[in-house]
Design a protein around this nucleic acid. Sequence first.
RNA 1: GCCUUGGUGGCGGAAUUGGUAUACGCACUAGGUUUAGGACCUAGCGAGGGUAACCUCUUGAGAGUUCGAGUCUCUCCCAAGGCACCA
Length: 1006
Amino acid sequence: MNKYNHKKIEAKWQKFWLTKKTFFAKDFSRKLKKYVLVEFPYPSGAGLHMGHLRPYVAGDVYSRYHRMKGFETLFPIGWDAFGLPAENYAIKMGVHPSKTTETNIKNAKKQMLSWGLSFDFSREVNTTDPSYYKWTQWLFLQFFKKGLAYESTGVINWCPKDKTGLANEEVIDGKCERCGTTVEKKELRQWYLKITAYAEKLLEGLKNLPEWPEAVKLQQENWIGKKTGINITYNFDLKNNYVLLHGFKGTPDGIFFPSLKKELNKQGVKYQAPQLPNASEPTEEEQVSFVLQNCQFDENTILFGHSLGAVVAMKVLEKLPIKIAGLVLAGGFTEPRFKDRPRNYHAKFNWKFDFETIKNKAKSITVLSDPTDFAIPIEQGKILSQKLNGALIEQNGLKPHFTNEEEPLILNILLPQITCFTTRPDTNFGATFVVLGPEHPLLKDRNILGIEEKIWKEIEQYQKQAVEAADMDRTAENRKKTGVFTGLYCINTLNNFKMPLYVADYVLGNVGTGAVVGVPGHDKRDFEFAQVFKLEVKRVVQKNANDAGDITSLDQVQEDEGIMVNSDFLNGMDIHAATEKIMDYMVEKGYGKRVINYKLRDWVFSRQRYWGEPIPLIHCEDCGTVPVPEKDLPVKLPNVKKYEPTGTGESPLADIEKWVKTKCPKCKKLAWRETNTMPQWAGSSWYWLRYADSKNAKEFASLKKQKYWTPVDVYFGGMEHTTLHLLYSRFWNLFLYDQGLVSQSEPYAKRHPHGIVLGPDGEKMSKSRGNVVNPDDIVKTYGSDTLRMYELFLGPHEAMVSWNNKGVVGVRRFLDRVWGWVNEIAEAPHQKSAGRKVGRSEVGESEVKDTEKVERSLNRLIKKITEDIEAFRFNTCISAFMEFHNEVKDEFITLESVKKFLVLLYPFAPHISEELYQRIGKSKSQTTLQTASWPSFDPVMIIDKTVEIVLQINGRVKGKITAPSGSEETAVKELVMQLPAVKQALVGESVKRVIFVKDRLINLVI
RNA sequence: GCCUUGGUGGCGGAAUUGGUAUACGCACUAGGUUUAGGACCUAGCGAGGGUAACCUCUUGAGAGUUCGAGUCUCUCCCAAGGCACCA
């Protein structure tokens, strides 16, 4: 008999499948569809490893099974090929990343084929292919057009090694997800995708995913981090009055003016907000003299101007005879150079300013500049603050050019109030201080709060330290609390308590409002802070009657349960009820606002690297940021010689003048391309849609094909992508769904995560540990069928397992035995052979049948394999095959039954199954088992004729009896009573109770 | 600190969902076969006691519910993963 030569037969069948296109899926087939997806790999130089193998084999088994079950099954693959390694290799070796990528893809594909994976290679996609990233760019522009892709300057995570900005999701334990380098903070202009706008939908969507593991959903939920609470605003004691000047074509009842006036009224602050004359055709002469004649100024006046109103304000100050308290300019400018279009008034104003005079007329000067301003170039803010020696605050308006109905920044600057977010307003009766994070906008300039010069120096020093310390030290455990007292006090409106205002770095700038109200009695961090600065600690929550009195140590701080005390009208209430009551109360009284806070941050979407999709935007001096027209997509990556990241926050593309300089699509004037590229996660945020229609040159994927194939029925992948790719792609899909561009709101009906495969030593596989098991080595020695089966046999698919080099042989031995067994049957039909009874039934000999044992074992096996594949219990499938073979190897079995066994084995070990199937069929022409249909089982055949029934006395096993299956209690009891062991046990006792479980056990209670 | 999932032989892991704990595989022991090694075949293999049939104990620890608990409930310990001075 010939030996099981895995090399020969595996190569043979792999070639057969490829040439016959066995696994190509048909669009719009009449069959029910099944879309099985695995995460497409990054084609690295090191090739694919165990981490890839695990989900791929699971997906393969699942796909092959469903094809046999009669589903039109799509099991596609592609290449997520943008990314750092190819680029780093290019830097080192000078080989273009596209070349490296091409070679690596070729190798990875060879590996996939050698593992016998049934991918549909006709739909292969490659994220670095211009025909693919054309659509990545096109999709990005949909975000841009809806205002969900925006540019902003902010402190972001920066990897000093990869020299690029990172998204929050890419920072793991303070380190770069790619290279493990400790991440720094850097203030940079970046592109963002507004994922926060979808926070609620992303959260809600999870409820419609019953087939996702709870752990995955929970992790996304925690990452989104929804918190409901209340923003409480605390006031200072103010003596100021205000003069508010609106802009061009404006009125004192437009944009944010009403909300501003409302707030001033509420606090009883005096203000004047005149309608300036001829707002649509303004002249300097007319407007300035109007203000000087109609408005009253004194030393407590703060003069505010928005847009052209800022120009008027400066001109007013030039002529004003007295000195005032402050000047605040929002969206102001010094020359009539606008980004959008010229204004009719530019000739009616004198654009020379007497900055020295203006400077001397106001004690403090603040300039507010919006980087997203559509009209005023951002340099204007800088120029104004420099010339006037004033504080510059660059911050996005809620609408560009500060034109929203509410502009909190302006409100905050004019009326220095402090807003604190809290989920526990019930404890506010115990609030004794207020803390601002060092990044707080009120601390951008001394003038805003009017902090004393001496204290201000201290604060500046503290801020500098906090920024330098970065997140690493700042979040370190058990860190001693530090801070600086501002010399100011806020009023706790509930009890008029004067709360000292501190600056401290335990309050983080990007959490909540960046300011915290300190309740030292009921928050451990606040308590620690209070101890350092010897601040008052008040008890307002009591766990039980015993713990009244002062709180003097950390473990007495009661955080999350108890009854209210010392809290006026909340006394005696449970904290949860009290929270609700006080929120209603605060909202009603107008000093609180219910808010929902999310931990989720907007997605930093630009990278300062070469090997990524260019962001398809053009910057024009006159037209602003303009999208590249669809007909000009894709914006191809230029060929360059130098790939090095500059490290300055500019992409290497910025150096390629020929590429950067272009024409504005709108006005055709000279303009500049955006030089940042997209992050790794861009291409994978929509790839499953492309598989449905991978060749489409007109759309990213037609709705018709999407409707046939999507959603993905099962998505195999790693837990590590839960808050990265999995969240990002849900976001893209939800957005595209809202635009009517995709047919399903959720992309993946079912997610099945896998555990990682550890090395033989139980440690994570890594080159440095030397414990890497290369799947290709296993293929060489034992064959891919063995590799696949052993990988599944290791343990539950979702569990972490460690590879055992010795264990592999067990699976190989099993396949060897199967090989010998089936060959023997094929060669010696219908006769005793080598001491075994084998035979065939398909030659018209109706008397030839399986033995009862075979019949029962086979039916059980069919049931087991079918159910276990559906439930992803692949490891127990392998055991079941072995058990089956052990049971029937010496039994008389028909060829028909052997074939059924091979069909069951096929999804797991396809090569050997195909080969053996062909051998028993004795057919010369090759067909594939893939087209065979999945066997069904007869439930009656599963039941044993006789069963073992366990005898228990008082719940302890005392013996076993054999009885016909289905025996009733009386019959079994009679049988049992005859047993000597029972008779002995019953001497002097009587049976009080009998518990009977059919076909399983009888328990006598005596 | 909070959240999630786990803890079963020497090892990887099964257990019809409350009903014979340790299936299947590895390792190990003995025998057979082989020129030898490997491979293969047969038998054994949770721990303790007994010549033996058999007895006792055992699913991280302890308690509870039940005729009966690896499985349910409570407390604690340990491990992995996630979040984190998150207000």
